[in-house]
Structure formats: structure tokens, C-alpha cells
Design a protein around this nucleic acid. Structure first.
Length: 328
DNA sequence: CGGCTTGACT
């Protein structure tokens, strides 16, 4: 299988080179085309930023935005704000992308006042906020627990020129579900359809999470049937929501059959699935069953951990709990 | 020339 993969990659490479000879010539003359800056730590990002400031002519704002995005993904939100301040002082004008990144950072810093004030910068710079700007603000209002402001913003978008999209509705629906206001979420769900916005798998994930939190299992089943009837198929995350909720309610048997159902559907459980199962068993003191799940994970050769390295510490904590309780 | 920005599960 890996052989097949590398062969087709080679073929694709060969094709693109033969069809675009001018590009390979370009590469020979100027060296490799600059790729996305690879940044894994805040220090890398700051060094790259400083290095870019030395270049003449200065790189375009897009390059700076790429760095801001990476730093934001590393969750150094206040660093993003100060980098942007430096950009401004050096005369690098922000664009719509920059300002959207800044709004997102203020949201994560719980500084919604500053988030909103960025809207003023849009107009000062002659830029138009777009649907992503408002979606980010909507998410910010939800994160600070102010669902009413989120809904108000959504209403303004519905009647305004910047129409809400599926992400806007998903954001508010998810916020309402997390507040156990599932009825309101369901109303919004009907409403988005009447506005011609089709729900997607994430919409259903949020609704299923909401009804499961309330222990309304029949409604969860209805949601599942409804999504499948619309050709929107549950995937690993959908099942994880079910498994997690069932475990937290102490319905270990049902959680296990949900896992069997996903395996039958050719959906591989991942580390989150197993974490939920173990966590559920640990909560109820059923250490032998938690241990069984752990053995299953090991027998799968830790395959489910690949690509989920940040989750390993969590798994270790759960395991330590298991062993500690076994030792008692 | 375009690129760069938002949403779900432990």
C-alpha cells in the first residue's frame, strides 16, 4: 500500500514538472519557491518575525498574517496582539485577514470590548468586515457566556448585508446546547433551514451533544436517523459524543454497543473514544473494565494514538488513576 | 497574481 502511494506521488510530480517546464526553470534560477514558514514554538515565530523585519523590501502583509496565525494556534494570543502593534508602528498595513486574527485573539483573551473596537479599525482602513469577522465575534460572545449578544448579532446579520452562513448558525446552536438550551437550539436549527442554509455534520454533532447532556437518548436517536436520511453521515466525532455522554451517565453497556456500532460502520474508534470509555469506568470505580479497555488499546498497538500526541498526557493521567485505585 | 482569517468531540 505505501508503495502504491509513493508511486502515484511520483507520477503526479513527474506530470506537474513536464506540464510546467517554466516553473522548474524558475526553481533553478531563484531557488525553491518560498513555502509556508514552519513554526513550532513561540521563539521560532518571534525570530522569524524579527528576521522578516530586516528584509528589504519588507515582506507582504500575507507573510506576517501567516506568522500571526501560527502564534495564535500556539495560543499565545497576547503575543499576536503585540506583534500586530509592531507591524502598525513599522507601517505594515493590516488587511481583513489580520484584523480577523486580532479579533479572534481578543475573544480568546476574554476581551470582547477590544474585539468590538477592532471594527473601528476596519472602517479607518477602508476595509469591510466579512462573514468571518462576525462569526468570530459570535463565537466570542458565546465563549464569554453571553448567548443573547450572540443571538442579537445573528439577527443583525440575517437582516443585514453580511448574511450568516452555516458556521454562524453552528456557533450559536453549539453555544445554546452547551447551556442546555436545546429547545432554542432546535428552533434555530429550523430557522436556518428556512433561510436556505443547509445543516452539516457539525450542526448535528452539536445538537446530539445537547440532547445527550439532558439524557434524552430517544431524541439523540432521532437526530441520528434524521441526519442519515439527509445523507449526512455520523463519523468518529459523532460517535465520541454519544460514547462520552453514555459513559458519564453510567451506561457502560450502551456505550460499548455504540463503539461496536461504529466499528460495524467501518469507523475506527480513536484515542478520544477509548479515553471516554476508561474515564466512564473509572468514575464508577469499575477498574477491571477500565483495564480491559486499556489492554485493548495496547493490543491495537497504540495505533489510535498516532496523530494525537497531545492526548497522551491525558491518557497517562487516566491510567495512573486506574493503577492507583487497583493498588488500594 | 494570490496567498493569510471563523465552527464540533476528551
Amino acid at each position: 500500500m505505501p508503495f502504491l502511494h509513493s508511486t502515484s506521488t511520483l507520477v503526479a510530480l513527474f506530470h506537474s514538472q513536464s506540464s510546467k517546464p517554466s516553473k522548474s526553470q524558475l526553481v533553478r534560477e531563484r531557488g525553491p519557491v518560498p513555502s509556508k514558514p514552519k513554526v513550532t514554538t513561540l521563539e521560532d515565530a518571534l525570530n522569524l518575525f524579527d528576521e522578516m523585519l530586516q528584509r528589504r523590501p519588507l515582506p507582504s502583509v500575507v507573510r506576517f498574517n501567516q506568522i500571526l496565525t501560527q502564534v495564535s494556534k500556539l495560543k499565545h494570543h497576547s503575543a499576536v496582539i503585540s506583534l500586530n502593534k509592531q507591524m502598525r508602528m513599522l507601517g505594515i498595513a493590516s488587511d481583513v485577514y489580520t484584523l480577523n486574527i486580532i479579533i479572534n485573539c481578543f475573544c480568546h483573551l476574554n476581551q470582547m470590548g477590544f474585539s468590538i473596537s477592532v471594527l473601528g479599525h476596519f472602517f479607518k482602513l477602508g476595509l469591510q468586515p466579512n462573514v468571518i469577522t462576525f462569526n468570530t465575534l459570535t463565537k466570542g460572545f458565546c465563549m464569554m457566556g453571553n448567548k443573547n449578544l450572540a443571538i442579537q448579532l445573528l439577527r443583525n446579520m440575517e437582516t443585514g448585508s453580511c448574511k450568516p452562513d452555516v458556521i454562524t448558525y453552528n456557533t450559536v446552536i453549539d453555544g445554546l446546547c452547551k447551556d442546555t438550551l436545546v429547545g432554542d437550539a432546535m428552533n434555530l436549527f429550523s430557522e436556518m433551514i428556512s433561510w436556505g442554509i443547509a445543516p452539516n455534520v457539525i450542526t448535528y454533532n452539536s445538537l446530539i451533544d445537547g440532547v445527550c447532556r439532558l439524557g434524552k437518548w430517544e431524541e439523540a436517536t432521532m437526530c441520528l436517523n434524521k441526519m442519515v436520511s439527509q445523507n449526512i453521515f455520523p463519523y468518529v466525532c459523532t460517535f465520541n459524543i454519544l460514547v462520552d455522554a453514555l459513559c458519564k451517565e453510567g451506561m457502560g453497556m450502551e456505550a460499548k454497543s455504540a463503539v461496536q456500532m461504529m466499528i460495524r460502520r467501518d469507523i475506527d474508534p480513536n484515542v478520544i473514544t477509548y479515553n471516554s470509555l476508561m474515564d466512564g469506568y473509572c468514575l464508577r470505580g469499575e477498574m477491571d473494565k477500565a483495564r480491559q479497555v486499556f489492554d485493548l488499546v495496547v493490543s491495537r498497538g497504540w495505533k489510535c494514538l498516532v496523530g494525537n500526541f497531545f492526548l497522551i498526557p491525558l491518557l497517562v493521567v487516566v491510567l495512573l488513576t486506574v493503577f492507583a485505585k487497583q493498588g488500594e
